[in-house]
Structures are given as C-alpha cells and as structure tokens.
C-alpha cells in the first residue's frame, strides 16, 4: 500500500528523520535533548565518556560525538534539532554546523546563503 511515506532517496544530501532514523538514533537524541539543561551540559563537559555511557550511546554514536562530526551523527540517527543543542555546548550555531556538513568555511557558507537571495 502506498502510504505517501516521504522517501529522501531522490533528494540529494538529505536524510528525513523518519521512524527508521528515530529508532536508530533514540539514545543519541535523548542525550542531546538533555542538553536543554545547563547542569547537564556541565556534566557532559566534566566527563564526556561517563555522560555518553549514561545514555547508552552505541559505538557509532559515541565516535560521531567524539569527532564532533554532524554528518556522522545524522548517519547514526541524530536529529538536527537535538544535535543543535549539542553544538550549542561549544557555542556553535546553525551556520557553523552548515559549514561543517558542506565542507565549506563558515564565510563560504554564509556567502552561499547570501547568493541564494540574488
């Protein structure tokens, strides 16, 4: 039966956060959701290994967090809204995250956005 389930296969560079991704990424997203609270951000910074273990990250998720690599986090089931809270711990905004994912400098990424308005 056609459910109209969005499939991102035909949209380049895009992973839709569907049920499959959500199942895969629950632990990682749960940890990042906890970063809404300042005391949890501080606890992560004090002992990153212990904090990741507390949320039972799998090896891929742990490695993506260790490398601070957003594309790897998405591949491991991460959702960008929760990942943005992780980025916030390091004072990084969505343009820093965009630059990392597209392999550009932040200045190049910003220029690309400006160009979209021309």
């Amino acid at each position: 039966m056609a459910t109209g389930r969005p499939n991102s296969d035909d949209i380049p560079g895009t992973t839709l956060f569907d049920g499959r991704q959500s199942l895969k990424g629950y632990a990682l997203n749960h940890m990042c959701y906890s970063f809404n609270k300042a005391e949890n951000r501080a606890e992560f910074l004090r002992d990153e290994d212990a904090y990741c273990a507390k949320f039972r990250l799998n090896a891929k998720q742990r490695e993506a967090i260790r490398k601070r690599n957003v594309l790897d986090m998405i591949a491991a089931g991460g959702n960008i809204y929760y990942l943005a809270k992780f980025a916030g711990i390091f004072g990084l905004g969505v343009q820093d995250v965009g630059a990392q994912q597209t392999g550009m400098t932040v200045e190049e990424f910003k220029a690309k956005l400006v160009a979209a308005g021309k």
Binding site: I11, G13, L71, I74, I80, G98, Q101, T102, F109, G117
Partner: peptide
Amino acid sequence: LDGQRAGFINK
C-alpha cells in the same frame, strides 16, 4: 539545516 544539502534556500 541538516545534511550535505544544508543551506538550501529556494527564493
């Protein structure tokens, strides 16, 4: 915001 297509805007 996410993926290699981050920064996509369609005026």
